[in-house]
Design a protein around this nucleic acid. Sequence first.
DNA 1: AAGTAAATTAAACGACCGTTTAATTTAAAC
DNA 2: GTTTAAATTAAACGGTCGTTTAATTTACTT
Lengths: 226, 226
Amino acid sequence: MPPNFLAGRTMEQEIVYSQKQIELMDKALELFAGNGYDNTSVRDIAREADVNIAMISYYFGSKEKLLEAIFARHLTHVRNILQQIVKARDLSPVAKIDKIIDTYIDAITRNRNFHVLMIREQVALKNDKLYEMIRAMKTRNFELMQNAVKLGEKQGYFRKGIDVRMLALTLFGTVNQAFTNKKYLCEVYKIEEADSAAFDTHIITKLRSHLKLLFRNHLSHEGNHK
Amino acid sequence: MPPNFLAGRTMEQEIVYSQKQIELMDKALELFAGNGYDNTSVRDIAREADVNIAMISYYFGSKEKLLEAIFARHLTHVRNILQQIVKARDLSPVAKIDKIIDTYIDAITRNRNFHVLMIREQVALKNDKLYEMIRAMKTRNFELMQNAVKLGEKQGYFRKGIDVRMLALTLFGTVNQAFTNKKYLCEVYKIEEADSAAFDTHIITKLRSHLKLLFRNHLSHEGNHK
DNA sequence: AAGTAAATTAAACGACCGTTTAATTTAAAC
DNA sequence: GTTTAAATTAAACGGTCGTTTAATTTACTT
């Protein structure tokens, strides 16, 4: 008989997982991110996490619900990280934009596997529950950026008429592109692909300053010619 | 016995496909783009293209080689489209950047399915042949942009010290993000997702002008403060 | 019209998939 | 120490996968 907490639960409830379950989720995430959800079998996961195949259904109900559990778990983390930005009320608009850029990159860097999985699976998404989770996160991300830009406009730091929606597309698109093209970028910059620390210090550092300068130029008055 | 042209061939040779084969590739591409490569079975393809399952192996050797054939076919198209940029020698650096942006967006718009497939599968890529094809394309794309930027720098239109590698990441990342988030964007802009024409006129038009302004601000002298 | 190679078919192949079963072991409560 | 529920297991389930076979039809050459 399965453990009781899997029976019926609402969205809001935080689920407490056992050590074994967390280990299972972590191994599964690693495999999902590396090989894709479809290309990872429950047998792969079970082998890697050193549990019986049946435990996946026993713990999570199904392979798909395991994926949902992983998403719910990590999106909670992401939400917590984003709170940093909301708290930073006393920053100037320019500094706030910088912080948004840094925070987003930090969130991915800290949890690379999950973000790679999310970027990869969001294209293929048939699962309504996952789509809803990602949609909520995108909306929150956009609103954070919009608040910062609108404030900057009102206070006269930024020019008027900025298309925040498109600007958000640029931020998330550029960062995602960097992480999904890791292999290619490592080749170009002559970095060992497995060396994530080198990737972060050499390439992601470039990415940070590029985005900050790009946004500053675009948002500032001087940048607004024509 | 299979048709002779599948026996042994070099990279360079252009392959001539029969009408039936092209139809098969087109239907397969449609399904791959819609549901992902792994989620599309050869039975799905055969049913949609109205051929026997065995014809896929008979024509292309395997499902994977069918994917390779689709990539080779469409990447040839992309290469031809990019030639437009090389030919446009008499344009000013600013106009040339605009043309690169437009051409890249045109290439995707004209062949949406293939690009969605490519963006989706490049994350998961195990296949060396496909990776090589995509790598070559990325390098060509980068070089086009680098040539335009370097010329603009030399002629004094652009500021010095522009990180072209990161700028390319921004262009391709932003555009890819727009196309992979079509569903979400259509919700936000209240457009029917199936209405691709509306997506192009309302959202992609915004994307074009956003990117052009963004790049202009970033590349120009005035934009270079700090 | 006969001969021949290409095209097409239905059926079967073995492999792997996610899930479930039923039996057994483990652990905690009394 | 017995009872009881949770945890774990090996095995089997039905289904789908990509590919191959062997037989048949089609189309073209002589």
